[in-house]
């Protein structure tokens, strides 16, 4: 009986061995009135956030995360969002489709469908723009985890493996730094924008983190799908 107890204790002890990445603590939490928020980005004019949902909806919120607009058209499984001065770029994971919504009226203007035959729910999870390389970036969630570079016409030009994470759920380029978010590992990776090698890692105490962006003041913002909340941290 004692041996069984010791074995169980050893197993639990091993299981609680923690990693050495820096742990972040949120300073503020906001409830998102968005069902299943799966990614978030700051608008180009830094006056709004755009949030997409697993149910295929695109929302605009103010800086306190209150919904201000919603696109009329519905997709299937929106998982990535990025905005510039003219368009809101939305990635549909299941349909492998990027739709460009006009920022002015949130109506779809054009789009492109990528080819990827992997699992329906293990496809494109993010969308951002790498200004260093002038390429759009999307990530394959898992099986295997990959970073894809897309050209200005949203066609694939390169792929990079990223085996350091169990999965990737979001990506964000901010002030010359590239950040990747892992949902299952609950980790943020800062990577080199040129070759995506890891520079630094942080751990966040957020369940099901699926979106990463930065506030106009430079605070880290993480959206949680299961919690339907936005967590605001100090600048990295």
């Amino acid at each position: 009986m004692n041996k069984i107890f010791l074995v169980c204790l050893s197993i639990l002890s091993f299981s609680f061995i923690s990693d050495t990445s820096e742990k972040l603590v949120p300073e503020h939490t906001y409830t998102l009135q968005v069902p299943e928020p799966s990614d978030i980005c700051l608008s180009a004019d830094k006056q709004n956030y755009f949030v997409v949902s697993d149910n295929g909806y695109l929302f605009e919120t103010d800086l306190q995360f209150k919904v201000t607009r919603k696109a009329d058209i519905r997709g299937l499984d929106y998982e990535g969002v990025y905005a510039d001065e003219k368009y809101v770029y939305v990635m549909d994971e299941s349909l492998r489709k990027i739709t460009l919504f006009d920022v002015a009226n949130l109506k779809p203007a054009k789009g492109n469908t990528l080819t990827y035959l992997g699992g329906r729910n293990k496809g494109f999870e993010s969308l951002t723009y790498n200004k260093d390389k002038k390429r759009f970036i999307t990530t394959i969630e898992k099986g295997p985890v990959q970073i894809w570079e897309l050209d200005e016409n949203l066609n694939k030009v390169m792929e990079y493996p990223f085996p350091a994470a169990s999965d990737l759920s979001s990506a964000c380029y901010h002030d010359g730094h590239m950040y990747l978010l892992s949902d299952e590992d609950r980790k943020i990776f800062e990577v080199n924008p040129e070759d995506y090698s890891i520079i630094k890692t942080w751990t966040i105490p957020v369940l099901n983190p699926e979106g990463i962006t930065f506030s106009p003041e430079g605070n880290l913002v993480i959206s949680s799908d299961d919690m339907s909340k936005a967590f605001v941290f100090k600048p990295l």
Binding site: L76, S94, L95, R96, K97, T113, L117, G118, G119, R120, K122, G123, G143, P144
Partner: peptide, 17 residues
Amino acid sequence: ISANCQVSFSNGSTVTE
């Protein structure tokens, strides 16, 4: 194990897996 045999196809409006 690394083969990841599941396959899906999309025509831009419907996905079949």
